[in-house]
Design a protein around this nucleic acid. Structure first.
Lengths: 176, 176
DNA sequence: CACTAATTTCAGTATATACTGAAATTAGTG
DNA sequence: CACTAATTTCAGTATATACTGAAATTAGTG
């Protein structure tokens, strides 16, 4: 696939951003490329377009699939696997949130809970420090349960809520 | 400072999480240590506690200060700089959001806008692809303006809003 | 303003991660 | 079921980033 300057700019920037979020450059670039592409691409084409090794593409695609951001499709008369990205951005966003929560927030909550638990019997750790741990746990649990509720709201309602922005406070202002 | 097992567990986990979010391990560990500590620490003590080079601590503290997460305080009768972390977690969270937006989202918005702009005169890029770029821009702008509104809501109202969770939809359900 | 403690800078090195290319494996096809 | 295309695995290498320790700088103190 031949990249136009606009596509190049987009993909390079995305790769750059990826690295800042703990996603490797190639993975982010492939995701960007597949998002832009209006048709599924096969691995060979991705490798040529981004000028990276075929094997690198293979690994990166596997990673993207494990996130649920990319899936395999097949094209009639072609035995190669083709890949396409989620295109709905709300969907994409929610998939990323979900995965990051599962991989990062949940383990952190476990860690915090176990710190609090061990803290009860532990006389070596000053109370002030135990309190900090407890505060962090409370904070993250508030957040986590907020998120848990948000993800069950039907998509259209959620979008409405977002577009409403700070106007929601008009309602709760009266109530609370 | 002597780390108890709980503190150690907390700090090591935090360092680990940091790396997944594009923050280097030592920076994240120092932040965790200062958050836990009920009193400001000087650089030497941080270096000893975490068993890293003094110079590394210096650089990392500078980074944390640039984020606004840590600030210098002075202790009577001691000429060394001491450091303490923000302790309010809502504050900490909002500082991190603010910085990440400034460093990552804003530049991405610029990139997307310039892609859309160049797209107008560009005949090489297929319309379908231009549309994807436009969609991404719209999505991120919705998000960004939502965030912009949220950050102007007074802290207590915001906290109320969070604790309310999905119940907010009760209100908008009737309205929208 | 000389002295010393504290801090920062920076070149060099270590470490972690990304990437390559060849070899091995898997899976379609006649 | 032999053949070949497609894909994956993996050891080796390259690259980016983190970290160290010595030297330079800064800034308090008598």
């Amino acid at each position: 696939m031949k990249l136009t300057p606009i596509m190049q700019k987009y993909i390079l920037h995305w790769g750059e951003m990826g690295t800042r979020w703990g996603v490797n450059r190639t993975v982010a670039q492939i995701h960007a490329l597949l998002y832009l592409s209006h048709e599924p691409l096969h691995a060979e084409e991705i490798a040529e377009t981004l000028e990276v090794a075929r094997s690198n593409v293979s690994t990166s695609l596997r990673e993207l699939q494990s996130w649920g951001l990319v899936k395999i499709v097949h094209v009639m008369g072609d035995r190669r696997d083709h890949f396409e990205s989620l295109e709905d951005l709300w969907e994409m966003f929610s998939v990323i949130m979900e995965e990051r929560k599962r991989r990062e927030i949940d383990p952190t909550l476990s860690m915090l809970r176990s710190c609090v638990l061990e803290g009860e019997a532990d006389k070596a750790t000053p109370e002030a420090i135990k309190k900090r741990v407890q505060d962090m746990l409370d904070f993250m649990e508030t957040f986590s349960s907020w998120y848990e509720q948000m993800r069950h709201i039907p998509r259209p309602t959620l979008i409405k809520l977002f577009k409403l922005g700070s106007k929601v406070t008009n309602f709760i202002g009266k109530k609370a």
